[in-house]
Design a protein around this nucleic acid. Sequence first.
DNA 1: CGAAAAATGATTAATTATGATTGAATATGG
DNA 2: CCATATTCAATCATAATTAATCATTTTTCG
Lengths: 251, 251
Amino acid sequence: MLSEERRNAIVSYIDKNGTATVQDLVDVIDASAATIRRDLLMLHNENRIVKVFGGATSLDYKEMSSAEPSVGDKMTLNTREKELIAEYAASLISDDDFVYIDSGTTTLCMINYITNSKAVYVTNGIVHAKRLIERGYSTMIIGGKVKPTTEAVIGSRSVEELARFNFTKSFMGTNGITERAGFTTPDEEEALVKSEAIKHTLQSYVLADHSKFGVVTPVTFANIWDCCIITDTVPDKNYADLTMIKSVSQQ
Amino acid sequence: MLSEERRNAIVSYIDKNGTATVQDLVDVIDASAATIRRDLLMLHNENRIVKVFGGATSLDYKEMSSAEPSVGDKMTLNTREKELIAEYAASLISDDDFVYIDSGTTTLCMINYITNSKAVYVTNGIVHAKRLIERGYSTMIIGGKVKPTTEAVIGSRSVEELARFNFTKSFMGTNGITERAGFTTPDEEEALVKSEAIKHTLQSYVLADHSKFGVVTPVTFANIWDCCIITDTVPDKNYADLTMIKSVSQQ
DNA sequence: CGAAAAATGATTAATTATGATTGAATATGG
DNA sequence: CCATATTCAATCATAATTAATCATTTTTCG
């Protein structure tokens, strides 16, 4: 058996079962533990599996204990509401729009519902850009520092770049919405990017499920009247007097 | 039996079965192991098969067998040569380097071997940026249009952005290398980005396996003496007089 | 035909992959 | 926190594979 064949067998076993211990692989494949370990190390370097203590897991195997939520993990939270919000937001895009899509999980979800291929899309999310391109849309990405946790492009360079654009519509994520603090986010640099994008947009939308209302996080990136909120259910009617709200709840 | 038809028989056997050991081929084809090896070497240099230790595999063997987990990463045809080239290139990065990593599959492979977390990395590849960040490196991305097929950031905006950087090292991919045409690529916009990156770099490296030598594609992005070539085997000794070459072949 | 060139097969030294061993590192269960 | 049990990485000896060499055969072409 060729060593390549053996390594492929290891990868398919792991992909099929999600995980495998070194002993599992020794039993299934005719090779010693030392060889299996060497293979796992090589496959890990080639990004074909993830080597962990005791064995290996497939690339897309989710670790439940992971404390920091990366973009991929957060996707699974609050799906039903997010889907509805995302679907409605995507429907707003028309042919000659120049659209800015903010980084964040709700906006990422929105991309799946986009159907307009005549519009041009700009984003500061690495994953967002990748998905837009995969789906065949005309896409641009903002340059700058990449923030590790959210895979968003931020920093002064990004702000400068944004200043040269004039969007017709922008779709933003947020961490908190209150009447007094407006739209807020925990990261100052991310907030600067968001503000700049909104500043250069004709009509900005904030995509936020009901859990975001009444929450304040450190930095404000827009006042409550600057953006139209797209949400599922509005907890407080006061908001209606201050800004435009589109509720997409099912009933 | 004509040597040419024997080689064709070898290729079809390998294409049909995915892999073959030297012994397999000796059994099937009426020739000695030495001849089979010579054939495999020749066929490998002609890019008709991939020679591996113990035998050979078809060109797309790895792609076929692994159930592709992440979309878009399917273009990673990682041959043994690419791995070696990538590994050596990654080892060149030192602590206070400001590194540019060009889009392309060989440079993507290189990221897996990077270990220096003190350097700062800039790239125009969407997937490259994502992987750099995932692996925990300080990363920046160039802004601009995203090219659908390669997921590379290109266009005038990218060139403008690059003009503001001063890299200590850059690692480039290429489609062709010849003495007269230098380093070439099929896409003009991509060529412009590459040239600009090289222009703002102290020492540029081109990562290229043997199959790129003697190939000319429409647009030149650098002269042969502008970059140090990192490759597996150099087909023509003339190159050594024109540029710096580091060969990482196993022999 | 016959010499030169090319291809082939056998042999061998060198390279590479593998498997076993061992001290060090890491996880587990109090 | 500790002690214990796994697992790991490094090392080495062994087995397998290879590239290089050379003698022999086949092909080429004047």
